[in-house]
Design a protein around this nucleic acid. Structure first.
Lengths: 247, 247
DNA sequence: CGTCCCCTTGAATGAAGTCAATACGCGTGG
DNA sequence: CCACGCGTATTGACTTCATTCAAGGGGACG
């Protein structure tokens, strides 16, 4: 079940059988199923556990008073929503689903157990948190500096690579269940402009996007066109010195 | 010296004398002085310690290939630049000064000592990290959804409040040594447009900004005008249940 | 068959960027 | 002391990227 998480963490360091068991146990607590476009937790509420996405897509978002919505992060399988949340009394944003989603609720105790007694697992989880922060920063760069074309291209590169890390791509394709409106909310663009920009990307043969399936025939080309560098995802086993030696 | 940090952390929880001593010790290691507009660490380099700003302003930034620069965070006294950095092999962004800056280099060992053996200090430091993340997310909202007017207003509110937390404001004023160009790099606006927007803010009597001094005559009004809510700064002593009881 | 959601398109508008020139303060060196 | 250069702030005119408004098309589903 938590295969995706293990798979992702091994981009940082090799985990031992025991490490994997610990992770598995933590993610086999309470499982919740959500429909599409449903809130998991809302701004103002008190966080009670860490949410781990097992399947489906979710997002972190915030409404402005006037109804505009900004999506601040996408969550795909293997992603955790804030390891540290329960230090805070109340959420400053909401988490909602985009598609139908299953989530594991990881309790405070389970997190403390992992971070306190299993240092390799702890390091790997902190690494994933640091990467999530780096992604957040990259979004600032993306929205702040890039044109619509680069911006959407960049986002597609990021998502594709993140999905590939957890085995959710086949060759050059992946599921992409996000509507154009939601893409707009994530990139700070209007729906209409997202639509036109996607057509441009299609016209340049950089992407194929139909029926909720995204194909990137030449990832390197898309990366170039959108000035994407994967360095901020820190996928080159930077924690190799922590490697477990049992297989 | 680390007064600012202690002062900031006490917005989360009350620290004991011992806690403060531990923090003081950690920030009294190597002190470095930088001139204005100088890099502290560059993208691609390996982080070796946590930087704690003692005085002056710094920022986190990234260049795009074509020379555009995005500032992703501002650092003011009391701010630490990434508690977890040394889990990563290389920086995915740079940190540079805006004014002359003094920084304390907090060693990996000092961080481990604080987080491992002093749980209240550890919690407080993690809280400050979580707040920094919340700020990062808010910048996405800011750049993604708000107009130039709201965007700059929002940023000024945030900075003013952060400075007030560490005692760097007097009444309605604070030092504000940021150039218009740097404001533009942080908000994703051109210098020219920043200039015009500042004039609008002045014209609405929401701010006075002259000679590197910012005055916000009516903070509540500026907050309203820029749809600013301080909730994401989590300043209402959310860790009060960890309070030390000695004074 | 109608409704709803999502995608698409066109035309008009608007916010912000670009280019270019000018102004101002400040330090340096003649 | 003044001239010069430099970085920062300001202004005007023009352009462009993106938004808004409005309408139409297509598929899924009851």
């Amino acid at each position: 079940m938590s295969d995706m998480l293990v798979r992702k963490l091994e981009y940082f360091t090799r985990l031992s059988g025991e490490d994997k068991r610990v992770l598995k146990r933590a993610s086999e607590g309470k499982i919740r199923r959500f429909g599409a476009r449903v809130d998991v937790i809302r701004e103002g509420e008190a966080p009670e556990h860490v949410n781990l996405v097992l399947s489906g897509w979710a997002c972190r978002y915030k409404y402005l008073e006037d109804g505009r919505r900004q999506i601040m992060s996408y969550f795909v399988p293997g992603d955790t929503c804030d390891l540290g949340v329960f230090l805070l009394r109340s959420m400053d944003h909401s988490i909602g689903t985009l598609t139908a989603v299953t989530m594991a609720e990881v309790s405070r105790e389970a997190v403390l157990e992992m971070t306190g007694n299993h240092s390799r697992v702890s390091n790997a989880l902190w690494w994933s948190t640091l990467v999530a922060e780096a992604v957040q920063r990259e979004w600032v760069v993306n929205i702040g500096q890039r044109t619509a074309f680069e911006r959407i291209g960049h986002l597609l590169c990021e998502i594709f690579i993140r999905l590939r890390c957890v085995g959710l791509t086949t060759d050059a394709s992946c599921e992409f269940p996000i509507t154009q409106a939601e893409l707009g909310e994530a990139t700070g663009l209007s729906t209409v402009h997202v639509n036109r920009t996607l057509q441009e990307l299609r016209g340049s043969n950089l992407i194929v996007l139909r029926d909720k399936v995204l194909t990137i025939p030449d990832l390197a080309a898309l990366q170039r066109a959108s000035m994407f560098s994967p360095n901020y995802l820190h996928l080159d086993r930077e924690g190799a010195h922590f490697d477990a030696n049992d297989l």
